[in-house]
């Protein structure tokens, strides 16, 4: 395999590059969020990463009004996509049905950035240029770059090239994956990954389908194959804990049983459900379906954590 990056290297669609992340792998990391996901988790906190292409978003609170601006109401904006309701404040509304993927250039019309884009085409060099700004922190903390999403493995050529080049520059690499990709994609990227953070969201295939949109048969098959094919990699299993959905002991014990035979699965972490992404649903004209879901209580998290700690032979913070 060619170990250098040429000008022909693939580009990727990046939603965000987030610095100083401490929960996305070892040390202080820079997390690169890629666009596109094959799951539809109802609690998704990054809805802007689901759709595979750049897409328009709209933050109405930033709109300065049709009278002061009104550029989005005129061509070349798509007909009917933006409108004002008479006798109310003159900030623009969006008809999300009339905004299409092909018309993302309309974002450039908006001077206040009320209309903006989620997703930007970037090269490997562009991403690494930003990632390398924090190289000193990586060295001190054992951190590096983490690819997340969306599902970063759905851009396998870009992800593989980016991580390979990061390695070449001495940067530690990690990915966050939900595992619902063809094995060929995984096989292409994993050789360039040091730490694989991978989700076990639900155990039961039917419930997995209900909450995520697909069952988990391929996901589990991929994980098993990856554990066996890459014994030198570090795997960290994770579960986003959603009260009432997967916060039962049964799921935790099931995941522990699944990973138990594999010594390269070095940890199992719980990610408490949060609602930080809720506002973004509004920006995309979508409805957040978990409006009333509560965060898991510290007590329930501690109970589940103690099961994991026991399995890993650790003493839990609660002393259990």
């Amino acid at each position: 395999m060619d170990q250098t990056v040429s000008s022909l290297t693939p580009t990727g669609i990046v939603v965000n590059i987030q610095h100083f992340c401490t929960n996305d792998g070892p040390g202080i990391r820079t997390t690169v969020f890629l666009k596109g996901c094959g799951n539809r988790c109802k609690w998704c906190c990054n809805p802007e990463t689901i759709h595979p292409k750049p897409e328009l978003a709209y933050n109405r609170s930033k709109c300065i009004g049709a009278k002061a601006c009104g550029r989005c109401l005129q061509a070349p904006a798509p007909e009917g996509a933006f409108y004002v309701i008479a006798d109310t404040d003159d900030r623009v509304h969006v008809n999300w049905d009339l905004v299409s993927d092909a018309e993302t250039e309309v974002a450039s019309l908006c001077p206040s950035e009320a209309i903006h884009l989620f997703g930007e085409v970037m090269t490997v060099d562009q991403v690494l240029e930003e990632v390398e700004q924090d190289a000193a922190f990586y060295r001190e903390s054992g951190g590096g770059i983490t690819l997340s999403g969306g599902e970063c493995l759905l851009q396998p050529a870009f992800s593989a090239t980016l991580l390979m080049e990061a390695h070449r520059r001495g940067i530690n690499t990690a990915i966050e994956t939900a595992g619902n990709v063809p094995w060929a994609f995984m096989e292409r990227v994993l050789p360039h990954v040091d730490t694989v953070l991978h989700d076990h969201k639900l155990t039961d295939p039917e419930r997995h389908k209900k909450w995520i949109g697909v069952d988990n048969k391929r996901i589990l098959a991929n994980y098993k194959r990856a554990y066996e094919a890459y014994p030198d990699k570090q795997f960290i299993a994770r579960t986003p804990v959603i009260p009432g959905v997967n916060d039962g002991e049964e799921h935790i014990r099931s995941v522990l049983a699944f990973i138990a035979p594999y010594k390269n699965v070095i940890d199992y972490q719980l990610l408490p459900y949060h609602r930080y992404g809720e506002a973004k649903y509004g920006f995309l004209g979508r409805v957040y379906e978990l409006e009333d879901f509560e965060r898991p209580t510290p007590e329930s998290l501690a109970r589940l954590q103690s099961i994991i700690d026991e399995a890993f032979g650790r003493t839990s913070p609660t002393g259990a």
Binding site: K210, W211, G244, Y288, E289, E291, D292, F293
Partner: peptide, 21 residues
């Protein structure tokens, strides 16, 4: 409005078959 369109809002009626407030 957004609240009213959240179809998973009441857990008392069973998983995935929740009554919308």
């Amino acid at each position: 409005l957004r609240k009213s369109l959240a179809p998973l809002s009441d857990p008392r009626f069973g998983e995935g078959a929740r009554v919308i407030e």
